[in-house]
Amino acid sequence: MNDEPVDYETFQAEMRRLLSDLKGATPDVVQAEGERLRNLAEQVQDERGRERARFRAGQLPRLLAGPAKASSEQFQQAQVLFARAINGDGPAGTRIPQLERTIEQIGALADEAPVREAGAIRRLNSPLVRLIDHLQS
């Protein structure tokens, strides 16, 4: 590792590479690469970039573990509704009203769910909205 100054974009490209290449890697490898990334963060020249890079380098193990998983009953029910809507078939005239009903049901589940899971549930509706637009076009 040399001590040449780097910009945030260089750090960010390395972070992106590691986020993919270290998926499934052993804890020892993740630790070693994390240490190298922290050293790289210290070489970022401007203060704001260095601050961001330090923060991002510290996130590496958590990001490799993936986002938090939901545990509520509402989330589980929303997943089932979403999958059935996506896997549905038939003419647009039949599917669109079904998709609209599913969006309503998923929205109701999001309203009932714990706050930390409500957004994740409601985001399931975005592809359904896109699918309706597609079927209407």
Partner: peptide
């Protein structure tokens, strides 16, 4: 503005985007 109160927003196939005002 997204018209469906239960959707946060959506990237449309034509390159436009909707966002929910309240959400």
């Amino acid at each position: 503005e997204e018209t469906r109160s239960n959707a946060g927003g959506s990237a449309m196939d034509d390159g436009g985007m909707t966002v929910n005002v309240d959400r």
